[in-house]
């Protein structure tokens, strides 16, 4: 009986520990456009160090544009649908491309980041070792699209 109770306690502890490691969902939202061809978005990054959190937030921002799009791109006055559709039609066809892997791993995406501002300096705890931070990230969208076209990640306009 004693062994059963100890077993149950250990199992419950393991389950709780598993729950604690679940990362909080990344919040991504459209913030606006300073000029045509650029956009600003709010992204929450997570990681154990500041540099990791920043990297995670930026990767999330570019992945959102590539694979998901920003359907909530609505400003106060008019609806902006420029980023509604993802740049890549089928994620599976490009995900394994060495170019894209290098683009994110070597932090080449920084060339297209026009702004990286921390929106809150208070880190929220995501798990025992990980914290989250929200950022405002500005992206030179037109240049990013052209770069992806040149490297055949997305098709040029046409068929």
């Amino acid at each position: 009986m004693k062994n059963v109770i100890i077993g149950c306690i250990l199992l419950a502890a393991a389950m709780l520990a598993g729950c604690a490691r679940t990362p909080v969902s990344n919040q991504i939202a459209y913030l606006g456009q300073d000029t045509r061809g650029t956009l600003k978005m709010r992204v929450t990054g997570f990681g154990s160090k500041q540099i990791e959190i920043e990297h995670n937030a930026q990767v999330k921002a570019f992945e959102q544009l590539l694979y998901v799009g920003l359907p909530d791109a609505t400003s106060a006055e008019i609806k902006n649908t420029d980023f509604r559709l993802p740049m890549v039609e089928n994620k599976a066809t490009v995900q394994g491309m060495p170019f894209l892997r290098n683009f994110f791993e070597n932090k080449d995406y920084r060339r297209f980041v026009t702004e990286l501002t921390m929106l809150d300096d208070k880190k929220l705890r995501a798990s025992n070792s990980e914290r989250t931070l929200p950022f405002a990230i500005g992206i030179n969208y037109d240049a990013f699209r052209r770069f992806m076209e040149q490297n055949q990640v997305i098709r040029k306009f046409g068929y």
Binding site: D82, R84, L85, E89
Partner: peptide, 13 residues
């Protein structure tokens, strides 16, 4: 217009 072109590109795909 940007979304218009994006939809056209989807049809091109």
């Amino acid at each position: 217009v940007a979304d218009f072109l994006n939809v056209m590109q989807e049809k091109f795909n």
